[in-house]
Design a protein around this nucleic acid. Structure first.
Length: 275
DNA sequence: TCGATCCTGTAG
DNA sequence: CTACAGGATCGA
């Protein structure tokens, strides 16, 4: 679930019910995800604090907390994490790994079947370091074609790996990186620095369009009861479609490994160009 | 810049 | 049984 659009949707969904609330109790059901914090210390630290605001940076969720030295609870959903509002924390889902309890037994739960997600406490320096380690937010004004072009010129990495690098662009993941490259007609192995300016422009547009579309879809999903597959609102054009005909040209979609992860692409619509 | 690793679940 | 999964980090 969690690339930038899904993480943003989670933030928007929980914000109204979480911002301004006081934490009556915190429980870490899987201590490992909060290392190196000792679980009892983390629970004690959170107890009694107030959540001021909920913000997002790339795929990172930040619950800014009240208290003397300003700090924040940093949540990363990784592959299968999620945050849900609970009417009553005495009834937890099976994949609950961590939760905060508010007044009246309602709460916020971190669920994660694979338990690859992470929770940490960040001070001001940590927050600044986190921000500094990340590239521009692709849905903000700071993400311009010129900035993308400048970063591209400086990198000989394959386009797909470039897009996954959070230091270059913050928040793209395996699915939407593949989708953006397909939209822009770029071969995933094409070295970034060999892309024509026009291609960079197309890629910039493709990234923004892909993320905007996915965000709208993710928001609608949360606002609607019942489980709908993402594909119903936001059909993926190449991701997961190995061996199926390309929706644009009919050639079969290929799957290759890059950086240990699957990349899907159309060999006809996304041909390597130039050097 | 790779591969292994952290975990659990699901599909083939 | 094996392969794979929307992520990131660490050590070689």
């Amino acid at each position: 679930m969690p690339e930038l659009p899904e993480v943003e949707a989670v933030c928007r969904r929980i914000r109204p019910s979480v911002a301004g609330r006081r934490i009556l109790a915190a429980r870490l059901l899987r201590p490992r995800i909060a290392l190196p914090h000792p679980s009892d210390q983390l629970e004690r630290f959170l107890q009694g604090r107030r959540i001021e605001t909920v913000t997002r940076r790339a795929k990172n969720i930040l619950l800014h907390l009240s208290g003397r030295p300003p700090c924040a609870l940093h949540l990363h959903l990784r592959m299968t994490g999620n945050l849900d509002l609970l009417p009553d924390v005495r009834f937890l889902p099976a994949s609950a790994r961590f939760y905060l309890e508010f007044s009246g037994h309602d709460g916020l739960v971190f669920t994660d079947p694979r338990a690859l997600g992470r929770i940490r406490l960040l001070n001001q320096d940590d927050l600044a370091a986190l921000d500094a380690a990340l590239g521009p937010e692709p849905l903000s004004r700071s993400f311009t074609p010129a900035r993308l072009a400048a970063a591209a010129r400086a990198s000989s990495r394959p386009a797909k790996l470039f897009l996954l690098d959070q230091k270059r662009i913050a928040g793209l993941g395996n699915i939407y990186a593949a989708e953006a490259l397909f939209l822009a007609g770029i071969h995933p192995a094409q070295p970034m620095k060999t892309l024509e300016p026009a291609r960079i422009g197309a890629l910039h547009r493709a990234i923004v369009d892909t993320l905007r579309g996915a965000l709208r879809s993710a928001e609608r999903e949360y606002s609607r009861p019942g489980t709908r597959s993402q594909a119903e609102d936001f059909p993926l054009r190449v991701y997961g479609r190995e061996g199926h005909p390309c929706l644009d040209c009919g050639h079969l979609v290929h799957r290759v490994k890059q950086g240990g992860r699957s990349t899907y692409f159309c060999p006809h619509c996304q041909q390597p160009r130039g050097a």
